[in-house]
Design a protein around this nucleic acid. Sequence first.
RNA 1: GCUCGAGUGGUGGAAUUGGUAGACACGCAAGACUUAAAAUCUUGUGUCCAUCUGGACGUGCGGGUUCAAGUCCCGCCUCGAGUACCA
Length: 928
Amino acid sequence: MDYNFKAIETKWQKQWVKNKTYKVEIDKDRPKFYVLDMFPYPSGAGLHVGHPLGYIASDIYSRFKRLNGFNVLHPMGYDAYGLPAEQYAIQTGQHPAITTEKNLERYREQLDKIGFCYDWDREIKTCDPSYYHWTQWAFTQMFDSYYCNQAKKAAPISTLVEAFNAAGTSGLDVAQTEKLAFTADEWKVKSEKEQQEILLNYRLAYLADTMVNWCPALGTVLANDEVKEGISVRGGHPVEQKLMRQWLLRVSAYSERLLQGLNDVDWTDSLKEMQRNWIGKSEGAEMKFQVKDSDIVMDIFTTRADTVFGVSFMVLAPESDLTAQLTTADQKDEVEAYVKATAKRTERERQAEVDKVTGVFSGSYAINPLNGEEIPIWVGDYVLAGYGTGAVMAVPGHDTRDFKFARQFNLPIIQVVIPEGGEASDTATWEDSKDSKAGTMINSDFLNGLSVPEAIAKTKEYIREKKVGDVQTNYRLRDAIFSRQRYWGEPFPVYYKDDMPQMVDAADLPLELPEIDKFLPTEQGEPPLGRAKNWVYKDAYPLELNTMPGFAGSSAYYLRYMDPKNDKALVGKEANEYWQDVDLYIGGTEHATGHLIYSRFWNKFLYDMGHVIKDEPYKKLINQGMIQGRSNFVYRINGTNKFVSLNLKGDYDTTAIHVDVNIVSNDVLDLEKFKNWNPEYKDAEFVLEDGKYVCGWAVEKMSKSMFNVVNPDDIIEDYGADTLRLYEMFLGPLEQSKPWDTNGIDGVHKFLRKTWRLFYDKDEKLNISDEKPSKDEFKVLHKTIKKISDDIEKFSFNTCVSAFMICVNELGSLKCNKREILEPLTVLLAPFAPHMSEDLWEKLGKTETVCDAEWPVFDASHLAESTFSYPVSFNGKMRFKLDMPVDATNDAIEAAVKSHESAQKWLEGKSIRKMIIVPKKIINVVVG
RNA sequence: GCUCGAGUGGUGGAAUUGGUAGACACGCAAGACUUAAAAUCUUGUGUCCAUCUGGACGUGCGGGUUCAAGUCCCGCCUCGAGUACCA
């Protein structure tokens, strides 16, 4: 019988469903292992060959763990809310739920064909009310909480109210939007509404007027990680800054814990580094600059308080509240015009014009707290409102941006640091600021002569003593904007009473997404939910019109898989205590600053409130590399419909045109298919080489427009799922990006057929021998057991496939069909090629699934050798091999080398200076 | 600019962490089987010189450490990813 992958794969996929082979339940007798794939968003395009890479890797690891006695949780579900389905709805009027359901079915169909061991009984969808019930619940919990910096954890907001009643804000150190100060008496006399407004300053989910990334094309605001280089990640539309009242999550409260937590997780260094940069901790000082003839005090943040004697002006962000306050009457027009002009520019324009220095004088002066000098206050858009205090002290001598600004507006430049090995010089002659990371202080009063680190320490001490500022830590991480002016997302469990937000009662959750007639904003510019009929709570109070963003549903999904049907809690105690956390998380690096920050934040909050038992959700995380496309090109001779083969194109003036990779084989174009591919090429003519049309190629992103998309369904149709799985792994290291080239796939398919043939004789009859295997056969097997076991643990799946090929090639030449070899080999192969292994396992007479077989145990005694073949080098160059007993003494080896025939020509006329002998490794003879 | 990662045959990639560079596979070439093709099998395949035995060179570039360097150190170059007026 030939290897009939179609019959085998269909058969076992049915059997697995029928036997519930992948159903998982809590089993306290076995250790748990939780393997998770990053939640896919089911797009309309379906899966291409790059998507399953990570899923195959996690599937192999899950099966391997199960074979090693672990109770493995390996679930799958869908991040089903999102912009594309809604954009499609706007264009076609089709309800996003229908589009989503259709896409999801297609995804499922494609996934099923690959033979994954998911427990589909645990499937979740973020758009399912029984799921978003708990997304809404978590939000209400955050609303009812604040973050205490002293306890370093979240606590119920009622505790804070008690504290206000007892002593106002005194003695409190809590996360807050604005630094407020009031006494208990002041608090008590405030109206209910005023108190509610104040509490928003502390809640972990809060409503506030903030600068947001507004994307007009999508009609919604976006979080920082959803914007790259001033354009939206989804859709690529321009984004501008706008002041809006929005829901936010106080992620910044957890900055330090999110940073510290990275030390306890097993993630790649590069991913941790990305998160560290995104959190952006910097330590420095906050200093107070009194404004001349005013009671206003400017707070500025600096990491280089030691350079304060070099400050020659101050700069405010145009959006800063202080800008208007500090503008004098005669500068008013100019400043207002500048602020307006800045606001009009998109984020993208602002970034593109980094070199353009713009600014305007406010008319006011500040007083340097260290030397009492008066310095002008300017407004400039190089200062960001969102970072630090939105104001800086400018040290043009030692900061590039300040230097450029000073030159542009003719402001004084003072040198305060002499770089190591340099001398003080006239700043008028400088072309750029001078580096100040190391050196000696000058022009700095009591700091003169000190080194930079000494000066930093001394300044900190000084400003604390004189109370002109304080040592301060700053984080770049911003609170997450949580409102979206869209339809297809979780509704907020929020209603408004007297204009103040209130949470929907827990008993009334989930608050289901209402039906609307059109998926567009209302005529009044309200979000789409403004169209919903009776969108009120308790028949009286209007409900929130915004919906939640994409990351809401994906922030705690891994917890839900532990207990997906629980209608009393996000996750039950028993399930949470058993499954605990994710042992292995596999997914793309694109989630580094979004999902992976938000879900860590979300989880830490739930941990603080005692709802889950682990502080960090993902113990080990691996980023699979991107599968790139390998595009093919044809070369059209300009102005003709004639195409010239790659190596002859130098003789012509040509234009390269992308051609569908599916009509090219080994870079040779199928001419007939090409003519039929596009009516434009129906009458195409060709200049061939050796009778063939050879295409050019390049590695590019896999995308429709490059005609290089390869569909896994097609591969499975031609070669089977097991071949697809093996080939995806064989392409290269999991974490590396690499191009997909279908051409190499024959190799792994051939390997599977060779494996099959070990079980079948020439007449295609099953033929397995119960004879004792030979020493060589055992050696091949155990070498493979060791290699596969080690490499799976290292996630080095490409070398596993090579090892299998070597093993089967060797067993093939030994003509081995011994049960004692083939049985363990089938188990080794089961994680990689589950369909074939399951089938062969049955052929071996087993009645239980191969998934529950026992992983073969490596026995080193089978690898023991009596001789070792030494490579013999002369001055480091390998010249010949020498077989020696493994227990040969160095003297015996030395003698053997000296008398060896091949050694003579290298020793001739030279003397042996030294002989290096590394037992069972190498011999190196140093001659000269 | 800063941070991280990577540069090995025509191609994808191996190399036990300092010890035989190019495993395994694709592609290519020659051969076997076949009327023929496909499939399958065998052999060869880093570059250069040589009829062979063989030799020289060779892991982005330039230095260095070492008996021995793809691997370690110093200085560059190129590509990829992330991030960016972050004070």
